[in-house]
Simulated assay, not measured.
Amino acid sequence: MTELTPPRDCQDMTALRAEIDALDRRLVALLATRATYIDRAIELKQENGWPARIPDRVEEVVSKVCQEAEGQGLDPKLIETLWRELIDWSIAREAQVIVAE
């Protein structure tokens, strides 16, 4: 993975946009990797007879990412919104398989 050019070193909008596009590709790749962990969670939950949604775990994940956001100088409300959507998508993905079994 190549290093990104620091924002201050981008001399024009074309260069800046190229870096944003590269960062977006990395984010998508990370989300795709996260989905493989969700697939493994499906298997483990099935083996243990657990439901797709475990409310305490959802709140734990949201709390952790909000704290991380604050530490990184990001708006925790934005991160909470994004992660709740991501978690809902993940749980729906799990529920399709867990319920079907």
Rank of each mutant, 00 (worst) to 15 (best):
R8I: 10
I79Y: 12
L78K: 15
L23W: 08
W83E: 14
E19R: 01
A92F: 00
D9M: 06
R84C: 04
R93P: 06
E3C: 03
D39G: 09
Q96D: 06
G71W: 05
L86R: 15
L4M: 07
L27S: 13
V28C: 05
L44N: 07
L44M: 12
A29K: 15
R8V: 10
V62T: 09
A41G: 02
R84L: 04
L78R: 15
C66G: 06
I38N: 04
P55A: 06
Q72P: 01
W50P: 03
E85S: 12
S90M: 06
A52Y: 00
R93E: 09
I91L: 05
R26I: 01
T2N: 11
L27H: 12
M13V: 12
L82F: 14
P55K: 10
M13Q: 03
I38G: 03
Q72T: 04
D75Q: 07
E3S: 09
A29T: 11
E60A: 14
L74E: 01
D88Y: 01
Q46L: 12
S90E: 15
W50G: 05
E101F: 09
V58H: 10
I98P: 04
E47W: 13
T81H: 08
W89A: 15
A41L: 10
E70V: 11
L27Q: 14
W89Q: 15
A18M: 03
W83L: 10
K64R: 15
D21K: 09
P76W: 14
I20K: 07
P55E: 00
A92P: 03
V58P: 07
W89P: 08
E59V: 08
V97P: 01
E59N: 05
I79D: 01
V99H: 12
R25V: 03
R8K: 06
T5I: 09
E47P: 00
T81Q: 07
I98Y: 00
V65Y: 14
L82N: 08
L30V: 02
A29C: 07
E70I: 08
E47M: 06
L27V: 13
D88P: 03
Q67F: 10
L31I: 12
A35Y: 04
V62Q: 04
A15P: 04
Q96L: 07
Q67N: 09
L31P: 09
P51I: 05
G71M: 02
V61W: 03
R25L: 09
D24S: 13
A95V: 08
D88Q: 07
D12H: 02
R34N: 05
R57C: 04
P55H: 04
A15K: 11
